[in-house]
Structures are given as structure tokens and as C-alpha cells.
Design a protein around this nucleic acid. Structure first.
Length: 256
DNA sequence: ATGGCAATGTTTCATTGA
């Protein structure tokens, strides 16, 4: 089973990119973040037409998450859950479903703006609530994938000195990422030797992509019990090279 | 120290992202 996560920064703008990418990489599950669409505007028919069933939770302007599942291999998302039952949140950042014998959680972690801000406090509370939820027994082996807005360690940062202590890299965020792993997950990307300076996000400004001035903040966490069967995990930079790209690249894992 | 780029809304700029 192949899974992927991609922050597409507006599904309205990026729908052609998503469709083209799925033709090239027909993953069984694609998790999207920052759809930025009201549910009534979600391009359900267009995605169904290329063989994907969908579950989504959106709002105007900000946030919004979706699960796309390949109909012929894994069928439609089942037992869909919106949000975290332990955390009342107006922001649409979580959607989960049973797919192919796994519980798949698609997450768009808060950005946090800057260390010490109200948004940063919200980010920490949000992650703590996610942790609390995932600490509860789950019905199926659980995969957590999405835009974590955390660079787990300095290997995931193009300029660790410049980013030290900043939001996305702060000790409190990294501790929380480690605490999620301690629940029994592994970072699929780090199961394999990877090229140095592999990132999943690059700022739109200052030619950051061309300079590879990026961060690795999009992740796929798999249960430790499944780690031995994971065949591959990589980041596909190709879509970031297109005209009018998302600032994030998709991350893929093959769970065997 | 600041803004730089991009998307959204109902816009003529403010807000947010990371």
C-alpha cells in the first residue's frame, strides 16, 4: 500500500497538479492539506473521474484537509472522522478514515506563527490533544501523515543556525514530535538512507527552491510494528518545479 | 530590523502562511 501527503496550498488552484501527479504516482491514499475550500466547492466529481474516492473537511480561506483513496485498490474511505474528539476546534485540520486495513489520519498541524505568540500556544495545545487522542487504543494500526509544521532535527533544516529556536524548530515543538514517536511510531523517511538536505517545503521568496533553502516539515509516521515492511519513503520535488507550484512537495511511502 | 511571495476575500489592502 502506497500513501502520500501533500500540502497543496489551495486545491482550487492546484487541482490540475494533483490530477497530473496522481496519474504519474497512482498512490492508494493521498492526504491533502490546505485545500482552502468550502465543502460545497470540493472537486469531488473531478477526482472521482480519475478513480479516487474522497473524504474532506474544509472551510473558507484557511486550512481544510482531504483523503483521496484509489477506488480499484483500497475502495472508499470508511468510518470517516472529522477533527479530534478530545479537542474542540473550529479549524479544519484533521480527517481520519479506515483504508485498506489501516487507520489513516491526515493532519495539518498549526503553523504557530512565532515562538511565544498566541498561535504558538494554540499549536502546542493542539499537538498535546492529538497526542492524548493517539495514546488511546485505536481500532486499527494507525498511520499519521500530513504537514506537521515541525522540522524534527537539524538535518531537516537548510540553515540550522538561522532557524535555531525559531518556530517549526523550537525545542518544545521537537519534544512534541519525539513524544508522538514515543507512542510507537517511526518516521518513515528516516527508515532509509536519504540524500542530505532533502526538504519538503521551500519559501516562495528569495529563490528559496532554487537555493534548496528548505525545511522537512511534512511527515509520514507508521506504527513501529510495520516498520520492517516499509519499502520506500521519499520526497518528490518534481511538482515544486512546475509553474504556479505549491510551496510544499509530496512525501510518499510504500508500506509493502 | 524588515520584507521578500502567494492565496483568499470582496479587495483596492489585510491576513495568513512557514
Amino acid at each position: 500500500m502506497k500513501l502520500a501527503t501533500w500540502n497543496i496550498n489551495s486545491l482550487k488552484v492546484r487541482l490540475p497538479h494533483v490530477i497530473d501527479w496522481l496519474q504519474k504516482e497512482p498512490v492508494d491514499v493521498l492526504c491533502l492539506q490546505e485545500t482552502k475550500l468550502r465543502d460545497e466547492n470540493f472537486p469531488k466529481a473531478e477526482l472521482e473521474a480519475i478513480g479516487y474516492d474522497v473524504a474532506f473537511s474544509g472551510q473558507p480561506t484557511y486550512n481544510g484537509v482531504a483523503l483521496l483513496t484509489r477506488r480499484e485498490t483500497v475502495g472508499a474511505p470508511a468510518a470517516v472522522t472529522i477533527g479530534n474528539p478530545l479537542f474542540d476546534d473550529e479549524q479544519k485540520r484533521l480527517i481520519s478514515a479506515d483504508v485498506g486495513g489501516l487507520r489513516v489520519i491526515c493532519a495539518y498541524f498549526p503553523n504557530g506563527q512565532s515562538v511565544g505568540s498566541d498561535k504558538y500556544a494554540y499549536k502546542l495545545r493542539w499537538i498535546d490533544a492529538l497526542h492524548e487522542w493517539l495514546a488511546q487504543p485505536q481500532s486499527l494500526p494507525t498511520v499519521l501523515l500530513g504537514d506537521f509544521n515541525i522540522a524534527p532535527d537539524d538535518r531537516d533544516v537548510h540553515d540550522p543556525a538561522a532557524w535555531e529556536g525559531q518556530v517549526l524548530c523550537s525545542p518544545q515543538e521537537r519534544e512534541r514530535f519525539a513524544a508522538l514517536l514515543a507512542l510507537g511510531f517511526v518516521d518513515a523517511f528516516r527508515l532509509f538512507e536519504q540524500p542530505p538536505k532533502t526538504f519538503s517545503w521551500w519559501d516562495y521568496r528569495q529563490l528559496a527552491f532554487r537555493r534548496n533553502a528548505g525545511l522537512r516539515i511534512d511527515h509520514i509516521l507508521v506504527p513501529g510494528s510495520l516498520a520492517a515492511q516499509v519499502r520506500e519513503c521519499r520526497i518528490d520535488r518534481e511538482p515544486r518545479k512546475r509553474e504556479q507550484p505549491s510551496d510544499h512537495a509530496p512525501v510518499l511511502a510504500d508500506l509493502g
